[in-house]
Design a protein around this nucleic acid. Structure first.
Lengths: 184, 184
DNA sequence: TTGTATCTGTTGATTTATCAACAAAAACCA
DNA sequence: TGGTTTTTGTTGATAAATCAACAGATACAA
């Protein structure tokens, strides 16, 4: 991709997220975004239909990166799964500004459901290949895990990450063991 | 000016100064500059003939800004002149990275003489309008002051600005008073 | 309500940056 | 030394960003 495109998109996303940290999504205008990104207003329309499209693509791009990090390695063992969980939480720590901004911003209720949706899709694949808990209802298992994970994440992020990533993983891992959803 | 030009030049200058902090000017290549600036190598040649031209224009741009800050207000009084001196040193503090980099970099001996040259030109104008020391040989006065100022600056900058801007101005001001070059 | 200002989305002409390819020069190193 | 790699400076075709101008929509205050 032409590097100008990436630079422009980066500038737009940065400006957009920065504005979301300061005011409600609905109050943000394309003018403000272009001003802060230091690009021509028309350039925004070369990449996004409107601010709703921008929000959607912004969320998508971040979630894709998140789940790329979240993915355990191939030939997964329990240890590597736990390690990938730590990586995920540490990734969230590194991108705390974005995630806490978008979680806290009124006017973006869509984010939680989008995250939940992606978690569900990912869990379906994971459970298919992991081969454990074959005796349980798959859909119940997926919904249970996704809700637990997303809920915990939301609490951790909106409360300014009160515990380090590793501590969070230890807690959640213990819970997963108790519920016998992973090998003990 | 088209904002793309300014962005590109900023990226080039930033990359260039950053590299000068790490290695001698002569060891720096256009390839490196373009890589770090994240622009196409050919784009450098749209703005600069070669790295020597880049160095020259880089120095020029910074010195023009410096002396714009250094200039005392119109309708100058002794107090405002002192205030402008403080402003100048504080400006240097804010741009410490550039000035210490370019002063310390082997391969850029030109900087000191360029600074001296600009100081001389500025002092000539200043002394014409200030109306003091009319009894002294103007050229001697100019050379004396320029050498003292540039020498003090170079020492202060290459020694990592050991004193705050205000203290430096106090010291230099006292010396200027002793030499009776300003109103007492 | 009416008038004013701001924001929006789009257009077309223009400028700038990109990329790939090239030959020549310089640097390197075995 | 001779051969290889890197750097340099230039080119032309193409893509992206800019700017100014426009009309319509919203917001907002008198």
């Amino acid at each position: 991709m032409d590097r100008r495109i990436q630079k422009t998109k980066d500038a737009i996303i940065d400006a957009f997220v920065g504005l979301m940290a300061e005011k409600d999504f609905e109050k943000i205008t394309i003018n403000e975004i272009a001003d802060r990104a230091n690009i021509n207003r028309g350039t925004v329309y070369l990449h996004y239909v409107d601010k709703y499209d921008l929000l959607e693509k912004c969320i998508d791009a971040h979630l894709v990166k998140l789940f790329k990090n979240c993915m355990p390695e191939v030939n997964t063992t329990d240890f590597s799964t736990k390690a990938s969980m730590v990586r995920t939480f540490e990734y969230l720590e590194q991108h705390a500004f974005f995630y806490s901004t978008i979680f806290k911003n009124k006017g973006v209720p869509a984010f939680r459901s989008r995250l939940n949706e992606m978690a569900i899709n990912n869990l379906r694949k994971q459970i298919d290949i992991s081969g454990i808990n074959q005796n349980m209802n798959k859909e119940v298992l997926v919904q249970f895990l996704a809700s637990a994970a997303v809920g915990s994440l939301e609490w951790w992020i909106t409360n300014s990450m009160p515990y380090p990533a590793k501590d969070m993983v230890e807690q959640i891992w213990t819970l997963l063991e108790r519920v016998q959803l992973i090998h003990q």
